[in-house]
């Protein structure tokens, strides 16, 4: 029993704590991937879903195509920016929660008897 208790503490303050730290990284990478952050940054000003108008021969047609394409890029930029903002917000929240977990983690085992004593003593 004592051996198992020692193993528990050894894991909690060793490999277990490391796992919490590494899960911080994987959670952040997960958020970046789920929101396609790298892709969106690379294509921030690209036309939305390639909805573009090919320019014609006349000046008027070219001007119209330029206007259409600029609009498509603006739509793309707005959508991507909103998604990126949401991603960064979630990234910050995730990082904060993970950091809290990392800090609280070593406090949990001693908290068990302390809280028990506090409860009993009132």
């Amino acid at each position: 029993m004592l051996m198992l208790a020692l193993e528990f503490f050894s894991w909690w303050y060793g490999r277990g704590w490391k796992q919490v730290a590494s899960s911080l990284e994987s959670r952040l990478v997960g958020v970046l991937n789920s929101f396609s952050v790298i892709q969106l940054l690379k294509t921030l000003f690209a036309p939305w879903r390639r909805i573009i108008t090919y320019p014609g021969a006349s000046i008027g047609e070219r001007f119209k195509a330029w206007g259409d394409n600029a609009f498509s890029r603006v739509v793309g930029f707005i959508v991507r920016t909103f998604v990126l903002l949401a991603a960064f917000l979630i990234l910050i929240v995730t990082a904060a929660l993970s950091l809290v977990e990392l800090i609280i983690w070593p406090l949990l085992p001693p908290a068990i008897p302390i809280l028990l004593v506090m409860g009993l003593l009132g």
Partner: peptide, 23 residues
Amino acid sequence: RFAWLLMSPAILCYSLAVWWKRQ
């Protein structure tokens, strides 16, 4: 007082569950 008393076994159960799952 009862909150502290309940939190103690709650953390114990949580710690054991995490230990089982990850180790």
